[in-house]
Nucleic acid binder design. Structure first.
Length: 622
RNA sequence: GCCGAUGUAGCUCAGCUGGUAGAGCAGCUGUUUUGUAAACAGCGGGUCGCAGGUUCGAGUCCUGUCAUCGGCUCCA
């Protein structure tokens, strides 16, 4: 789309304008790279000991506006590569110099391709570059492929957004630079819309909602990355995992249960020790010399169950599942809310199958993934996560090729909306990773289906084929929700806490008009009936005004609220108040208590979602 | 783990250049007996994340540490 390209060019030009402003105010600045990203741009800068903060943004933006107002043309020029290197040296721009040297040597500045070039296997056919182009606006010149807008006056609306550290070329061995992010759009209206969206995202932050709705907490005494789920949050976890488990049962998976610690030896067999040994929580027995670890994944345990009996081709596929917690010593800086935790509950499954069964097993899992996410109101895209040329993968490359080809075919035959990503595979095999789009159009990785030819080898898993020979099964790993903690972080933000009835921790709230005995008794009677039906109902007979109690119920995002007073007790009919975001059907208004409770119970049982999960323009504050 | 920022009552936040902590909501008590998004009054609540240091004196300055946030890196 031409529009998109214009926006891209404009954002790129703004990155240069930012760099120009930086150079004006910090003449000793050393520049890294300044690319375009979603919704905007950034520039990486090394200012030595000078630390910028967001307080500096206004000043920088003013300088940028000055440059925009001056309307300097963006002028392209070319230099032979050696001349360019001399320029960078002269301008004291070591990072540019490094990039130019890479261009000269390998024809690329991309780390992956550079590695390949070192090994002599460069595949993109680029030869060493002989000349490079520069762009100049005003007194700032930058190595750049372009294109740019005609002049600095021709950029749209922008705003500097945040600042952070970023390693030079994304490598943690390299020095860290300061990265300034800005967002940019063609018009002020679009920019404001984006700022509004960011604010909406902030108001939906699962950490904020988790506290407001009393779903989960963290404790300094327990440690970072170790969430505690309150009764309400636990309802969420259990409803979601119960649904995922029911899909598993229907698909013929058998539930298993395993201990949470194991001898570390297990992971030396699986290959995880070499790769993730430093992320294991170690546990020491006080009696034996064995070293144990908290399990960081479940597959090796399940493998041992499979290996515990001789298996016939007739028994396959053998399918295990369980919802269980694994523990990973994630680096503290990588933790955040429920998105990244150290105690990770997975709805994990492993299917041990013959090669001729892979298609059917995976097709069944894909079907379950779709059922689950359709019910949750999220759309999916699939990423086929394949290996790249690096040596971080185990197993025979020909098996990999076969597995990747199988996955590609499965994606096609199952009509997945998919794309391929090299370098995203697990170390033991390629994956189909599902990305869910939430109500704010953000994508999150959720379910995963993985083919594994490596672990059966390493664990020497076998079954007897129809000709009496020993054969290797293939493992199909799958998690539907992925990590329940992570999934909850996504789902809370997707729904903004306005859960459909079947997941809502509190489904119905009864509000009494007064505190007279008969009113309270009537409410308690409804509560008893609701309990019979398995509904989660709370009675609010506190000494507050009806208005205030209604408000409290709405803020607690309870789907249905019923006010009980003289009117209801006489008529034995109630007028349920329905949470604002939910779609109302005609004829739902006045009904008997029994009718109302049954309707809600059926809605919960059928996992109906009446909520329109889009962005509700702050429906709860007006 | 790395860079930067932040940490004051259950929550959201105020507390100027160092002089010994305050509001709203929530909670509790009382009055009120309430009709679909906030009745009124009173009360309780903080070793200012933690540990050192500077100072006559530290919520305020310095150092360390823990935690959180924004990124980077990583993610079986």
């Amino acid at each position: 789309m031409a529009d998109q390209d214009d926006l891209y060019v404009m954002r790129h030009s703004l990155a240069h304008i930012l760099a120009t402003a930086i150079q004006h105010q910090y003449p000793n600045a050393k520049f890294g790279v300044g690319p375009v990203v979603d919704n905007g741009f950034y520039y990486d800068i090394d200012l030595g000991d000078t630390k910028l903060s967001e307080d500096d943004f206004e000043r920088l933006e003013q300088e940028m506006r000055k440059i925009i107002k001056a309307d300097y043309p963006f002028e392209r020029s070319e230099k032979p590569i050696d001349e360019a290197i001399a320029w960078a040296k002269d301008a004291k721009q070591p990072y540019k110099e490094e990039l130019l040297n890479d261009l000269k040597r390998a024809g690329t500045t991309i780390a992956k391709e550079l590695d390949a070039a070192e090994l002599g296997t460069i595949t993109n056919g680029e030869a060493a570059v002989e000349a490079v182009s520069f762009y100049t606006d005003g007194d700032f010149t930058d190595l750049c492929r372009g294109p740019h807008v005609q002049s600095t006056g021709k950029v749209g609306a922008f705003k500097l957004q945040r600042i952070s550290g970023a390693y030079w070329r994304g490598n943690d061995k390299n020095p860290q630079m300061q990265r300034i992010y800005g967002i940019a759009f063609s018009t002020i209206e679009q920019l404001e819309k984006q700022l509004h969206l960011l604010e909406e995202a902030r108001s939906r932050d699962h950490r904020k909602i988790g506290r407001e709705m009393d779903l989960f907490v963290f404790s300094d005494r327990i440690g970072s990355g170790l969430p505690l789920f309150t009764p309400r949050g636990t309802v969420l976890r259990e409803e979601l995992s119960r649904f995922a488990e029911s899909l598993r049962r229907d698909a013929g998976f058998d539930r298993v249960a395993i201990p949470h610690i194991t001898k570390t030896e297990l992971y030396k067999v699986s290959g995880h020790w070499d790769k993730f040994g430093d992320e294991l929580f170690l546990v020491q027995s006080q009696e034996t010399s064995d070293q144990f670890a908290l399990k960081p994944m479940n597959c090796p345990h399940h493998n041992e169950i499979f290996a515990s009996l001789p298996r016939s081709y007739r028994d396959l596929p053998i399918k295990y599942f369980e919802t269980t917690t694994v523990y990973r010593d994630e680096k503290t800086g990588e933790l955040g809310g429920l998105s990244r935790v150290r105690s990770i509950t997975q709805d994990d499954s492993h299917a041990y199958c013959r090669r001729d069964q892979i298609e059917a097993v995976v097709a069944g899992l894909i079907n379950d993934v779709h059922t689950l996410y359709t019910t949750l109101g999220m759309t999916l895209r699939a990423r086929l996560s394949f290996r790249d040329d690096s040596n971080k993968y185990l197993g025979d490359p020909s098996l990999w090729n076969e597995a990747q080809e199988t996955i590609r075919n499965l994606a096609t035959t199952n009509e997945l909306d998919y794309f391929e990503a090299a370098g995203e595979a697990a170390f033991y095999g390629p994956k189909i990773d599902f990305m869910a789009t939430d109500a704010l159009e953000r994508e999150h990785q959720v379910a995963t289906v993985q083919l594994d030819f490596v672990q059966p080898e390493r664990f020497n898993l076998v079954y007897t084929a129809d000709d009496g020979s020993e054969q290797r099964p293939v493992i199909v790993h799958c998690a539907l929700l992925g990590s329940i903690e992570r999934f909850l972080s996504v789902y809370i933000e997707h729904t903004a806490g306005r859960f459909p009835v079947w997941v809502a921790p509190e489904q119905v709230r009864i509000i009494t008009v007064n505190q007279e005995d008969k009113t309270v008794a009537f409410a308690e009677n409804i509560a008893a009936q609701a309990k019979e039906l398995g509904l989660r109902l709370v009675v609010d007979n506190s000494n507050e005004s009806v208005g205030k109690k209604i408000r409290a119920a709405e803020l607690a995002k309870v789907p249905y609220t019923v006010v009980i007073g003289e009117k209801e007790m006489t008529s034995e009919q109630v007028n349920p108040r329905i949470r604002k975001d939910m779609v109302v059907n005609e004829g739902e208004q006045l009904c008997s208590v029994e009718e109302f409770l049954k309707t809600v119970a059926n809605e919960a049982k059928a996992r109906v979602s009446k909520t329109s999960l889009g962005a509700h323009e702050h429906a709860d504050r007006k």
